[in-house]
Computed example of a mutant assay.
Amino acid sequence: MFATYQSIEVLDLADELSEMINQSEAMADYHSAKRATFENKDTQEKIKKFAAMKERFDEVQRFGRYHPDYKETNRETRRLKRELDMDEVIITYRQAEMQVQSLLDQVGIMIGESVSEQVKVPVGNPFFEGKRRHGGGCSTGGGCGCSTG
């Protein structure tokens, strides 16, 4: 592939956009929350306990409910998961992740719409589902909300 002035300009603009995203407040919050997650000993202990129990549950799961420890292992795995989900550090981290995902979804939609109204833009946030631009249908008969025409 030969590089043209136009393709080099697009690459430069993409680098500039990625740098702006990396320097955004959402990304700074994400890195801060991620760091806090790894530095908090209580949170790390909860993660280790859950991971160990999840591994144990996966072993028991192979036999399903016929395994003698299935109910207890299932119950304990759910309890540890709930405990982890309610951890303030984890909550902050997940909120920061969602903030970054929302930013990336917005940028993706803007780029897609600048190319064409018919560009399909996959997004990770259900809020943007209605903003997807579907053209020509998607073989679901309009089940996804796109126009089938």
Rank of each mutant, 00 (worst) to 15 (best):
T148H: 05
Q101N: 12
V10H: 10
Q6H: 12
E129C: 00
A33S: 09
E97S: 05
P126A: 06
G149N: 15
G142I: 14
R132N: 08
A14M: 09
I47R: 15
L80A: 07
T4E: 11
V107C: 04
G64A: 09
E117H: 01
D87I: 11
Q23I: 00
L103V: 11
Y5L: 13
Q6E: 15
E83F: 04
K71N: 09
S24V: 04
E72C: 02
Q99S: 08
A3I: 12
S102T: 14
L17I: 10
V100Q: 08
E55I: 04
L11A: 15
M1Q: 14
A36Q: 08
S114Y: 02
V119A: 04
M20K: 14
S102F: 00
D87L: 08
E16H: 13
F57G: 03
Q61C: 02
G135V: 04
I109F: 06
D87W: 03
F50S: 06
R132W: 04
R35K: 10
E97T: 04
V89G: 02
H134F: 14
T77S: 01
E97M: 10
S147P: 09
L11P: 01
K120G: 00
N74V: 02
E16F: 10
E59C: 01
V10D: 01
S147V: 11
R56N: 12
K54Q: 13
M98L: 05
G112F: 05
V100W: 06
L103H: 11
S18R: 14
G145Y: 11
R78Y: 01
Q23D: 14
I109S: 00
A36R: 08
A3N: 14
R62W: 05
I47K: 14
K48L: 12
V123G: 03
Q61H: 12
K71M: 04
A51T: 14
C138F: 09
V119L: 05
A26C: 09
